[in-house]
Every structure is written in C-alpha cells, then in structure tokens.
Nucleic acid binder design. Sequence first.
DNA 1: TTGTGACTATAAGTCCGTC
DNA 2: TGACGGACTTATAGTCACA
Lengths: 69, 69
Amino acid sequence: MDIIRVFGSNVRYYREQKGLSQEKLAEMSGLHRTYISDLERFQRSISLSNVQKIADALEVETHVLFIEK
Amino acid sequence: MDIIRVFGSNVRYYREQKGLSQEKLAEMSGLHRTYISDLERFQRSISLSNVQKIADALEVETHVLFIEK
DNA sequence: TTGTGACTATAAGTCCGTC
DNA sequence: TGACGGACTTATAGTCACA
C-alpha cells in the first residue's frame, strides 16, 4: 500500500467523476496542469498544503483521497 | 478545517496513545526529532512520503491521520 | 487533452544547539 | 521531554516547450 499511488489514483477517479480535465482541475486548485498530470501518474510526492487545495477543488473530504479503493 | 492542523493533532494523539516520545517516534519513522516537534505544532507542511513513514511508525492507516476528531 | 524532460526557485527536511 | 532558533542540504513546487 503506497500512499502516493493511492492518492494519485483517487485524484484521477474523482476528477473524472466530476467530468473535469486536468487543465480545469489545475485552474480550480490554483496549481499547474503538468503538476496534476505528474501526481496522477505517481511522479511527485506532493505536500499537504497542495493536497488540501486539490481536495477542495474536487469537493471531497481530504481523508477520502487516502482510502484505497 | 485545516489539514495541517488535523494531521499534527492526530500525530500527537496517536504518539501519546502509544507512549512514545517525539524522539522515539522520529527514530522509528526515520525522520528528525525537530521535525516531529514542528509538525505537531503545525509549523510545517509535510510531504506524502513522510506522512506514510509516520503512519507506519504509529501503526495506523494513513487516512486516519486526516480525520478530524 | 495529456505525457514527458528539463529547468530554477522555494519549501521540506536535517542537524547543531539552548532553554 | 519538548519548544524553539539558525544554518544548512535536498526534495518538491512550479513552469515551459514539445510530443
């Protein structure tokens, strides 16, 4: 169980559930498009401050993004 | 609801539940003692790879550390 | 629309202390 | 045992051009 993979997978899952592109999510969360791309592909070990921005943009509770599905 | 505060509070809670000192937890998680101190006082935005190390050391599931109590 | 390599700037994280 | 500071190194943040 790798937290970076679980998080990245969940971001992709909830982003697609909301019908958002990476670019739109990037805009909503105040981050960069390629940054979203990287973390969905497990290329980055993101810090908590940005985790919160993404959770807010996806309108999910933060801890939900860490639950393996 | 601030993820850094929730996380820091939970680390302190579970650490004390296990009767560990900050220094002992630091050793067990492979991190630095001042770092544990800082994050319990909400002074740092920790990265995911270290969140996992701490969760492992505390023997709790990662997502539990993000649930507000 | 997304993946990828490359890059610089800044924050994360370490280590030395003192109180 | 833990709070706190200063100086330092390393990882992540943040951005771009191009596939």
